[in-house]
Design a protein around this nucleic acid. Structure first.
Lengths: 242, 242
DNA sequence: GAGTGGTCTAGACCACGAG
DNA sequence: TCGTGGTCTAGACCACTCA
């Protein structure tokens, strides 16, 4: 005999996938659902927790439980040609970028192989589809390689990143370390995902032909709406993939 | 004011990390802990759930809650040179392999680009450190490329995989699709992880110079004990990394 | 202030593991 | 059989959102 929690979760999942509860719509209140299924509130809440873990439902305190928009799955393409490869593939994504000038702190200094408190430029990129945040990227470059831009708030979309790519010297090596983990509370808040939803965390370090690190990027992609793809060509004379 | 759940989780986490509760040891029973912290059992259980989500504690029904051994983090190295790159780096890992002959079903047939029910050999690899499973790999190759081995149960460790690597033609392209997700119930059971712990799921497809797919692998790496590393070299004449 | 989710309680009963 | 965790109840009280 299956736990009531799972029975209820299954039922709601079916109602969502068959469209009986429409996407973006609010579910009945937890109290209503609990009495409808004749269970107590904790039981009902644990059923909802299952759906949250699957990324199907989003709870908003004081407002209710909402069916999440099934977002287009994006694919991050490894190899470091562009700062956020997915923007190239999917023009429907909007992107907001915040620029800041900061000194290299402990972890970053090590990644970029620069001395502590040496000047960096940080690009905080958040891509959206509609109102739903889609991915988060923090890109750090030594300040002398960054576009000398105006103050810290620039609305000019991807132009910055394009310029960033043009400015930097040809890359010799791109290392991407990938891990699966739960988001930090801040990441969960910015991406508006449950803190139980796995994210793909990618740390990308790109070095030029002299061995100098020209970029370090910390990427966070919600597991339910993003993959990463790495293609490795052997025996090919510099065969440009894509 | 922080939730009691988090206060308790913090306290237990401290006790674990300072060694006051030793690794591998059993925690006091939930009832004892609940009365010690003066909370109800559901509250205490939700505190333990936090620690399970962090991979610090493992519950075993009917036995108790145990502090997990902090396993060596392994690194999967992309590029597809060896079937499970981490074995090369870490000789302390044991590995059990089960071989089976199966027909290509829907998903696999597509991955390997073979017709349905064409013969495949499946290698089911489970790597261990001590008693703790470390990673799970299901490797599929067309049967004519597989080592013609004996019956379905062969204990001869990595020899099979080595032979597998030697047998296959030189690779031209390796595509690795990486995603972060929660494990399926079966995966959670074999890897003995909580079903809330994120895993890194890697689908690797390797093709030879003629474009024939010679291997498809489904890798599952628990997020708390494995990363993946992809290195991309540009402008280098076939510079063999590693 | 009305309605929503967030947390917590004190106890019940069931299912699993080991002796 | 006994001790363990697994599930569930019927409420209580607090915190957030919005009119």
């Amino acid at each position: 005999m299956a736990p009531r929690r799972d029975v209820i979760a299954d039922d709601l999942r079916t109602q969502i996938s068959t469209g009986r509860i429409k996407t973006g719509e609010r579910l009945p209140s937890e109290a209503q659902l609990a009495s409808h299924y004749a269970v107590s509130t904790p039981t009902l809440r644990s059923a909802l927790a299952v759906l949250q873990g699957e990324g199907l439902v989003e709870k908003i305190h004081g407002k209710g439980n909402f069916v999440r928009h099934p977002l287009r799955r994006i694919t991050y393409v490894g190899g470091g040609r562009t700062p956020l490869s997915q923007t190239a593939t999917d023009p429907a994504l909007r992107m907001t970028i915040r620029t800041a000038h900061i000194p290299a702190r402990g972890h970053l200094a090590a990644l970029l192989r620069v001395s502590k408190s040496s000047p960096l430029t940080e690009f905080l990129c958040l891509s959206h589809e509609g109102n739903s945040p889609h991915s988060l990227a923090r890109i750090y470059v030594p300040r002398d390689l960054a576009p000398a831009d105006g103050p810290s708030e620039s609305p000019c979309r991807e132009a910055i990143l394009v310029r960033l790519t043009e400015l930097r010297p040809p890359l010799a090596e791109v290392r991407e370390q990938v891990s699966a983990r739960c988001p930090t509370p801040e990441e969960a808040a910015t991406l508006r995902i449950s803190s139980a939803l796995p994210v793909l965390a990618i740390t990308r370090v790109a070095a030029d032909t002299t061995g100098r690190v020209v970029e370090a990027a910390l990427l966070v992609l919600p597991g339910d709406r993003a993959d990463a793809l790495f293609t490795h060509h052997t025996m090919t004379e510099e065969g440009e993939p894509e």
